[in-house]
Design a protein around this nucleic acid. Sequence first.
DNA 1: TTTTTGTAGTTGCTTAAACAACCATTGTTA
DNA 2: TAACAATGGTTGTTTAAGCAACTACAAAAA
Lengths: 148, 148
Amino acid sequence: METIFTTENLYNLLSGRIPSAFNRALLNQFKANGINLTKEQWSILAVLWKKDGCSQQVLADETYRDKPSITRLIDHLEKEGLAERRPDKKDRRLNLIFLTEQGRSLEEGAMKVVDQTVNSAVRDIDPEVIQLVRDTFIRIYNNLETKK
Amino acid sequence: METIFTTENLYNLLSGRIPSAFNRALLNQFKANGINLTKEQWSILAVLWKKDGCSQQVLADETYRDKPSITRLIDHLEKEGLAERRPDKKDRRLNLIFLTEQGRSLEEGAMKVVDQTVNSAVRDIDPEVIQLVRDTFIRIYNNLETKK
DNA sequence: TTTTTGTAGTTGCTTAAACAACCATTGTTA
DNA sequence: TAACAATGGTTGTTTAAGCAACTACAAAAA
C-alpha cells in the first residue's frame, strides 16, 4: 500500500484531538452562557428533547455508550433535577426517562450555543468539503466496525 | 449562511464518534495481540519512543493533556514498570521520564498493531481524500482555538 | 539582591468510560 | 408449563479527564 501518510499522521487524525478541542470549546461556551451542563449531560438531553420518555437502552444506542454509563448519567440528571425515571407499566424491566420542566427549559439556550460553536468551528470551510469529510468518516467508521 | 448541514449532522462529525470507535478498535487489537496497554498509556509511550528522557510538560504538550493528567499517567507507567522519573540535575523543577527496558521492548509490537489498525480504518479510501480530511480538521482546530 | 513573575509538577475533587458480574423481568421452546 | 435464553438495568472496579489550589524552584525586574 502506497500512501504519503505516516501511521503517526493518521493516528493523530483518528484518535480524537479535534473532537477534544471541539468538546472543550463547547463546554466553555456553555459556561460563558450560564448553561450548567457537561457535554455528556447535554448529549443525553439532546436525545430527550427529541424522544422524551424513551428507555435507557435507547439512550445508550443513540449516544454510543454502554448501559452502565447511561445509568450513572441518568442518576446525575435526576440529582440535578433535569430528568426522571418512570417505570414502564407494560414492561417492568424498562425505565422510561422523562425531562422535567427544568430539563425542557434548557433546550433553546443550549441549542443556540451548540449552533454557534459548530458554525464557528466550520466557518470559511466549503460545504462540499465538509460533506466529503463526513462521508469519509462514515466509511472509516464502517471499516472499523466490519473489522479487517 | 446557507448549508445543507443541520447542526446535528455537524455535531456528530465534530463530537468524536469516529475517534471513539477507532480507539475501541485499537484497544481490542492490543488485547488480541497480548499487549497490555490502555490507549492513554500507549499515547505516552509513543512520545517516549521518540523522545526518551523528555519532561512531563513535553508529554503534556505532545499528547494534548493537562499536567495533572500526565502526573497520573506517569504514576501508572511507573507502577507497571514501563517508565521512570529522574530529576533533572540542571533544573530541579523538572522530572525527566525515561523508558525502562520493558517499556522500550513494547515498541515494535505496539506499533505494528497501531499500523494495522490505522490501515484497516482507511482501507479503500483515496489518499488525496484523507489528505483533504486532515487539512480540513486542522482548519477546524484552528477555528476553535482562535475562537470566533 | 530582594521582590515579583513564571514554570514544573502534585494533590484533591467531580465527572465519566469501559468492562465484568449481577438481578429482575420477559420471551422462547421443549 | 418448566427450563432456558434474551433483554433492561444496576453495582463494583479500574482508569482517565479537567479544573482549582497548591508547593518548589527558576528567571526576570525592581
